[in-house]
Design a protein around this nucleic acid. Structure first.
Lengths: 242, 242
DNA sequence: TAGATTGTTAATCGATTAACAATC
DNA sequence: TAGATTGTTAATCGATTAACAATC
């Protein structure tokens, strides 16, 4: 059922025969050689939103949906949905639309939700604490391995099922358990040196809650920044001119 | 010194003679009538980042900067910076560049940082609490007026200088003090009805930490969403394919 | 089957980058 | 002054939308 268009002559091979990671990065050209097909940031940033809407439909028991009715709900064009999805494969059926459960699973898979990523929380102050208490990491397919802080008042404390460890144990812990992602809920001043240290230890993903932009020279590292101030300023801009 | 190009013939009038709010929304056309010149979302979302970099330079004591050196720091083109700024006026000087303090102040002004916006925090659970404790609202030009919760365990408690009020007092409070923005740190299930209620009471800006998209039918209301799950899924996507 | 809806190609629209005259 | 750098117009690039043959 699921096929992927591979070259200009529309020669198709089953998606299942290609490793998924590779799929998003390549497309075949006429001579059947591979060539990188970059997925634009605009598309990538829409994927979680697609997932959110499909997950909602799924839990409401909706079985199928067309690009046009999904577009209505999401306030985007049906064309955009079909164009976006076509970056990753063919998930629909003419005359029918998309099977909600199937498309939800496919997009979840593209997002890596079923990969079993593990993360650590570095900085267990109010914000780190709030994430530990409230945030449903499993919803994004993540498992919280451990949390770290320098404060003696916090070390040893248990939040949910997680016991806060001393920062002194960080290096040994990362070396042994090799988490995929570090959540940075530390003061700004220590963010970059800490990130550099974690990168050296092999961590390649950062969920960065500090208000600084982090850098990793040359390495294959990804930062996802939550810039609270920036979003609040955007809101300030909008309400200031009406 | 600061002028704004107003029509196709490059007739210029001093920026100071136009009310700032209006400036971003209009441009003159040949017949000198006003016409809306929409500032694109792409530009708007870069403004806080410009502010952040300029604020940093300012605090480091840097007096002037050219678009090309700022572009180097920010990893964008000098063209883009000049193009973006030209939406709002002329802030530089040929052969010199931009005065850091002046440009910082101008962009701050465009963002409404000096407007004196007031906000309330609705939901004083872990996340609301963390924001009250840690977040420097003043940095974005906001003042926290009050916080609200339904939990008897929280009502009456003081966090920093803010005493948490009962949700029962919300309507009367908003009617009397008319805050500009509401921070929504409440459970998903109550987010939309609560937002609708606050919109009815005249609130037009929402800093939304719930994972649902809110709607305001027809009204002139702005939502700035912090979708934690979405950003974490974006990170998941990126680390899953390398 | 006929109607609906896909995936994809082509057309359009908008955003980014380059180039350059103006001028500090 | 000469060099540097702006603001702006033009060129390019990329993203969105429209259109439609394929087909369930």
């Amino acid at each position: 059922m699921r096929y992927n268009t591979l070259d200009k002559r529309n020669y198709k091979i089953p998606v299942s025969s290609i490793h998924y990671t590779a799929l998003a990065e390549m497309t075949f050209v006429k001579d059947t050689y591979m060539k990188k097909q970059k997925i634009s940031d605009a598309v990538i940033h829409r994927l979680p939103r697609y997932y959110r809407y499909l997950d909602d439909l799924y839990h409401k028991g909706v079985l199928r949906i067309s690009s046009s009715s999904l577009g209505n709900k999401m306030d985007i064009t049906a064309s955009q949905i079909r164009q976006d999805l076509s970056c990753f494969g063919e998930f629909g059926q003419q005359g029918y639309g998309y099977n909600v459960a199937e498309l939800r699973a496919e997009i979840g898979h593209i997002l890596g939700i079923d990969y079993g990523h593990r993360l650590i929380i570095v900085g267990a102050g109010h914000l780190g604490h709030a994430l530990l208490q409230n945030f449903d990491f499993a919803k994004a397919g993540f498992h919280v391995d451990s949390a770290f802080d320098i404060s003696p008042a916090l070390i040893g404390k248990t939040v949910g099922s997680i016991t806060i460890r001393s920062m002194d144990e960080l290096d040994a812990y990362v070396a042994q358990y090799r988490p995929d992602v570090a959540v940075l809920t530390v003061p700004q001043s220590v963010a970059q040196p800490l990130a550099s240290r974690l990168i050296d230890m092999g961590i390649r993903g950062f969920w960065n809650f500090t208000n600084v932009e982090l850098s990793a020279d040359g390495e294959d590292v990804f930062f996802e920044d939550i810039h609270f101030v920036d979003t609040l300023l955007t809101l300030s801009y909008r309400i200031s001119r009406t």
